[in-house]
Design a protein around this nucleic acid. Structure first.
Lengths: 150, 150
DNA sequence: TCAGATTAGATGTATATACATCTAAATCTT
DNA sequence: AAGATTTAGATGTATATACATCTAATCTGA
């Protein structure tokens, strides 16, 4: 019997980060599952809750998700009635906003999300938690070094 | 114009880690693309190169990838001739191993991977790099707190 | 102002990912 | 050793993800 606790150390940072993301995603989705929410879906509700009205492209830049990927994910969320859309002055843009039901669904999900956050924070400890925040944001800031961003 | 460099701080650790994983994945895949390799595929080649012969389930535990997910990903890799399989004493198991072509493909990919590693290491700095290694491994060690592991 | 370039999303396609469920093989129980 | 339980993967299904390419709308230069 091999006790868990010493995961194999992967030499590739990408592999290591992706593995961590898979593990953490499962932990959060275990909490969110009773609500029928996937991690990405909760993230989008939360981002919209914080950002108010934003275009699909802007949302994509905030989350580092390709805008064309969002087309599909937003379809699911729209189908469930959690967002409303309108065209902006630039009529190519889709301006997104949480609907009333979207706000309610987000509020319903908050306790589950907080529970997941707490579990992870408890197991990592404050110092590691803050460190991880810094590092993940730093990596998000790398982008592909293309420069400007709308 | 908003210069990139101050990404929005996401309150959700899962969202933050997943965003970082997306960004890093693109950085690595930009390097690997000329070889026709996705990040996950390179990771599997590297894991097999390090582990020698392992069962599908063990590989899944090493990478924290569901074994049934590996069924599909390994199909692609097998189709390309990069792995060989045999049944173990336990005839339910599939024992995986890099084929000769798999080893060659992995070697061909090494310079691109090293280039990606170097770019990230340079931008993060040694301290942050090591810190990130520790933290991602720590998170991989959380698993879902189910205890034993084969 | 108008032709060419750029941008915002949509669509086609391929891969990554996990869960529920199923089958076959191994293990455990009595 | 027969029946019950568990385990290793396979398959069906849904979502997540990005890239190439396409269309429509906007912007830019001359």
């Amino acid at each position: 019997m091999i006790r868990n606790g010493s995961p194999v150390n992967l030499p590739c940072m990408c592999a290591s980060l992706r593995r961590a993301a898979r593990v953490l995603t499962q932990l959060y989705e275990d909490e969110l599952r009773p609500l029928g929410l996937r991690a990405t879906q909760f993230t989008i509700l939360q981002a919209l809750s914080l950002a108010g009205e934003v275009s699909q492209g802007t949302l994509g830049r905030i989350l580092a998700i390709d805008s064309t990927t969002l087309t599909r994910t937003l379809q699911i969320i729209r189908r469930r009635g959690w967002i409303t859309e309108r065209r902006g002055d630039d009529r190519r843009e889709r301006l997104l906003r949480l609907s009333k039901e979207g706000q309610n669904q987000f509020k319903r999900a908050l306790p589950s999300w907080e529970s997941a956050q707490r579990k992870v924070a408890d197991q990592l400890g404050d110092r590691a938690w803050r460190s991880l925040c810094d590092l993940t944001n730093k990596i998000a800031g790398l982008e592909t070094m293309e420069g400007d961003l709308s």
